[in-house]
Deep mutational scan, measured.
Amino acid sequence: MQNSHSGVNQLGGVFVNGRPLPDSTRQKIVELAHSGARPCDISRILQVSNGCVSKILGRYYETGSIRPRAIGGSKPRVATPEVVSKIAQYKRECPSIFAWEIRDRLLSEGVCTNDNIPSVSSINRVLRNLASEKQQMGADGMYDKLRMLNGQTGSWGTRPGWYPGTSVPGQPTQDGCQQQEGGGENTNSISSNGEDSDEAQMRLQLKRKLQRNRTSFTQEQIEALEKEFERTHYPDVFARERLAAKIDLPEARIQVWFSNRRAKWRREEKLRNQRRQASNTPSHIPISSSFSTSVYQPIPQPTTPVSSFTSGSMLGRTDTALTNTYSALPPMPSFTMANNLPMQPPVPSQTSSYSCMLPTSPSVNGRSYDTYTPPHMQTHMNSQPMGTSGTTSTGLISPGVSVPVQVPGSEPDMSQYWPRLQ
């Protein structure tokens, strides 16, 4: 039975679970980093996980050691009161100082060594604690504590007292930064006198190289990059290397530039699409467009005044059976039934097929058609009795279509119309 579990990581490298990497692998990681390889490249070359490479390099940059820390136990506290007071002093002298600059000053002034120097995250935590204590304490208590930490007896009751030896409130920041720059020169002199001055200088240079600022491109470089971006948004590694040799930039910087440029292009394309949609959409909808001609068919113009009344309900007709019959029939052209047409008796099958359309009241044959006459024609229609054979009435077949029909004066039988409509 094995005491430890061995495995293979996602890159194909072998590791022992819970145990640190061998010293030979750690040394190779540092050597590759000094030669300029990126952590992701080191991870692929040595088949070590990216997190492990970053952790080893980060500890090497901070402490200069590649040895693993002790497994188990607690780390001794490195942010001692003396170190905290120095950090507060540096922050007062130059409020814009960075944590890694404070760390360098602690090393250069001999406050800490490589073994007990606090990390950048520890210094940031100390600065946050100082800021929170400043908010919790009152103004007087804060000034007393700062005077105690600074070891001075001057008056701290006013704002300019934060910067000793100065009279203009805006000047101390520059003086403090100048003092810090002077301390940086002392850093070089002190570290050069040490035993491991060369190694420390190499480590600091490598650290500065990794902690780079934003790349500033010249106009020629920007023009070359934009020209390549117009050709393709995704250049391959050969195109990037050719462009890197042409404009004297690292291939990694060119790759990052193209990634950022593609993101910018997507944002601009989104804005262009929004403007295009806004320009195509009308600002207001016309009133006429809300009524579609496919839904509402136009009603033909009436030929006679009587045809303006298109349904039985508008003429005072309360018989719903006839109203439904007229509205359900398709529109037909106007025609006239003459008196000489043969009077065919209704076929029983045809009569039964339209039995649902006729009223059940037996008085329908005896009703006159003056009910369908509009009010303004009552006088004219009353002067001509319906009993004469020459009287013409208008029957409504569908809305908007008038059918003048000659009705025999002897017997106005409704059943004569249905064979004609089939």
Results as ranks from 00 to 15, higher is better:
143 Y>A: 13
127 L>D: 06
37 A>L: 13
140 D>W: 08
40 C>V: 10
58 G>E: 00
52 C>K: 02
43 S>L: 02
86 K>I: 06
96 S>T: 14
117 I>F: 13
49 S>Q: 00
91 K>G: 15
43 S>A: 08
39 P>D: 05
39 P>G: 12
109 E>Q: 12
28 K>R: 11
73 G>Q: 03
103 R>T: 02
71 I>W: 07
89 Q>V: 09
136 Q>E: 12
115 D>R: 13
40 C>D: 00
4 S>M: 12
89 Q>D: 08
147 R>Q: 14
122 S>D: 04
117 I>M: 08
126 V>E: 02
126 V>M: 08
46 L>W: 08
63 T>M: 03
19 R>I: 05
45 I>Q: 13
36 G>V: 03
69 R>D: 02
121 S>C: 04
7 G>A: 14
148 M>Y: 13
20 P>Y: 03
113 T>H: 14
60 Y>P: 03
49 S>A: 00
37 A>W: 11
29 I>A: 04
86 K>G: 09
25 T>H: 06
107 L>I: 08
17 N>Q: 15
59 R>M: 03
72 G>T: 06
23 D>N: 12
60 Y>K: 09
80 T>S: 05
148 M>K: 13
105 R>I: 08
28 K>S: 08
48 V>G: 00
60 Y>L: 03
147 R>L: 14
142 M>C: 13
103 R>S: 06
71 I>E: 02
120 V>T: 14
52 C>S: 09
51 G>N: 03
49 S>I: 02
4 S>N: 12
22 P>N: 04
46 L>D: 02
120 V>K: 15
16 V>I: 11
19 R>S: 02
41 D>A: 07
104 D>I: 09
31 E>R: 08
115 D>T: 15
37 A>E: 07
34 H>N: 14
10 Q>K: 15
118 P>M: 05
141 G>C: 12
55 K>Q: 02
142 M>Y: 13
74 S>C: 06
24 S>V: 10
67 R>I: 06
43 S>D: 01
131 A>W: 08
87 I>Q: 00
33 A>T: 07
2 Q>N: 14
93 E>T: 11
93 E>Y: 07
66 I>G: 00
122 S>Y: 01
72 G>V: 04
21 L>C: 01
46 L>M: 06
142 M>I: 11
94 C>V: 12
14 V>F: 10
70 A>E: 06
39 P>K: 14
52 C>D: 01
11 L>V: 04
96 S>A: 14
15 F>H: 04
83 V>E: 01
85 S>W: 09
17 N>A: 15
13 G>I: 01
64 G>L: 04
100 W>L: 06
91 K>P: 01
117 I>Q: 15
107 L>P: 07
55 K>R: 05
35 S>A: 13
75 K>L: 05
115 D>H: 15
102 I>P: 02
96 S>C: 06
19 R>E: 03
38 R>N: 05
95 P>Y: 11
130 L>A: 15
30 V>T: 05
35 S>Q: 14
79 A>H: 01
20 P>D: 00
124 N>Q: 11
44 R>C: 05
10 Q>R: 13
65 S>V: 04
123 I>F: 06
81 P>Y: 07
3 N>A: 14
66 I>L: 07
77 R>Y: 04
42 I>G: 00
74 S>P: 04
99 A>E: 01
5 H>A: 13
4 S>F: 09
9 N>E: 04
98 F>E: 04
62 E>L: 09
25 T>R: 08
24 S>Y: 10
38 R>L: 04
7 G>E: 08
41 D>N: 07
13 G>R: 08
96 S>F: 08
50 N>S: 15
79 A>L: 14
44 R>H: 06
89 Q>M: 10
86 K>H: 13
101 E>C: 08
76 P>Q: 02
147 R>Y: 10
124 N>H: 10
148 M>R: 14
18 G>Q: 02
89 Q>S: 10
106 L>C: 07
104 D>R: 12
102 I>N: 01
144 D>T: 10
45 I>F: 09
41 D>I: 06
100 W>D: 04
41 D>T: 08
73 G>N: 05
92 R>H: 13
83 V>R: 05
122 S>C: 07
98 F>S: 05
11 L>E: 04
131 A>Y: 08
70 A>G: 12
27 Q>T: 08
39 P>Y: 07
123 I>A: 07
26 R>S: 02
105 R>H: 09
148 M>A: 15
114 N>H: 12
25 T>V: 09
102 I>T: 04
14 V>C: 08
56 I>W: 07
48 V>D: 02
97 I>D: 08
69 R>E: 05
71 I>M: 13
22 P>T: 04
44 R>G: 03
128 R>F: 03
107 L>C: 08
107 L>S: 14
92 R>M: 13
103 R>C: 06
143 Y>P: 13
134 K>L: 09
79 A>Y: 02
120 V>H: 07
17 N>E: 00
81 P>H: 07
144 D>V: 09
92 R>I: 09
24 S>D: 08
10 Q>H: 07
32 L>E: 04
81 P>V: 08
147 R>S: 13
94 C>Q: 11
58 G>M: 13
53 V>N: 03
75 K>D: 01
25 T>Q: 08
99 A>G: 15
32 L>Q: 00
102 I>A: 01
141 G>N: 09
91 K>C: 00
134 K>W: 09
88 A>F: 10
11 L>H: 06
146 L>D: 14
65 S>A: 06
145 K>C: 11
21 L>P: 01
95 P>L: 08
60 Y>I: 00
106 L>F: 05
11 L>K: 05
56 I>T: 02
42 I>M: 02
121 S>P: 07
39 P>W: 03
30 V>M: 05
123 I>L: 03
20 P>R: 01
134 K>D: 08
139 A>L: 11
145 K>A: 14
100 W>F: 07
108 S>H: 13
100 W>K: 12
143 Y>C: 12
19 R>G: 01
61 Y>E: 06
10 Q>I: 04
115 D>F: 11
97 I>Q: 15
119 S>K: 03
6 S>K: 15
4 S>R: 14
31 E>D: 15
49 S>T: 15
100 W>N: 07
105 R>T: 10
26 R>Y: 01
65 S>H: 06
30 V>E: 01
64 G>I: 01
